[in-house]
Amino acid sequence: MSSKNSSLSRRSLFGGVATVGAVAAATSVLPTVVKNNLPAAAPALPKPERGGGYSLSEHVQRYYKTTRI
């Protein structure tokens, strides 16, 4: 075997080991990152006693303005 072939296989071996290590580190950290970045649920408004529940909020008014021709 020549030294050129030997160094290429050694280089690819270390590259593969580094890739596996990086993937293992990322997968061990990822679940905690995802859990911490989840948005908190907004507190639910109480349900109206007689049904309904629609309110003409600022967001809804803005939407209606975008649908006008």
Rank of each mutant, 00 (worst) to 15 (best):
S2Q: 02
S3P: 02
S3V: 13
S3D: 11
K4D: 04
K4V: 04
N5A: 06
S6G: 02
S6R: 14
S6N: 07
S7T: 14
S7W: 10
S7V: 15
S9G: 06
S9R: 15
S9M: 14
R10N: 10
R10T: 14
L13Y: 08
L13E: 05
F14P: 03
F14S: 13
G15F: 04
G16N: 12
G16P: 04
G16F: 03
V17F: 11
V17L: 15
V17S: 10
V17Y: 06
A18L: 13
A18K: 11
T19F: 11
V20I: 15
V20W: 06
V20Y: 06
G21N: 02
G21H: 01
A22F: 04
A22S: 07
A24P: 05
A25M: 04
A25L: 12
A26D: 00
A26L: 01
T27F: 12
T27Y: 10
T27A: 11
T27G: 09
S28V: 05
S28C: 00
V29I: 02
L30E: 07
L30S: 12
L30V: 09
L30A: 15
P31S: 10
T32G: 14
T32R: 15
V33S: 00
V34C: 03
V34L: 09
K35W: 02
N36W: 09
N36E: 08
N36C: 05
N37A: 12
N37K: 05
L38R: 15
P39I: 04
P39F: 08
P39V: 06
A40V: 11
A40Q: 14
A41W: 09
A41H: 11
A42F: 10
P43D: 13
A44Q: 13
L45F: 02
L45P: 03
L45E: 08
K47H: 05
K47M: 08
K47C: 01
P48C: 11
E49M: 07
E49R: 10
R50Q: 09
R50P: 00
R50I: 05
G51R: 01
G52N: 12
G53M: 04
G53C: 06
G53E: 04
Y54P: 00
Y54A: 01
Y54W: 00
S55V: 04
S55D: 01
S55E: 05
L56C: 03
S57W: 00
E58Q: 08
H59S: 08
V60F: 09
V60Q: 09
V60N: 05
V60A: 09
V60M: 07
Q61F: 00
Q61I: 06
R62S: 13
Y63A: 01
K65R: 14
K65P: 02
T67S: 06
R68T: 12
I69M: 08
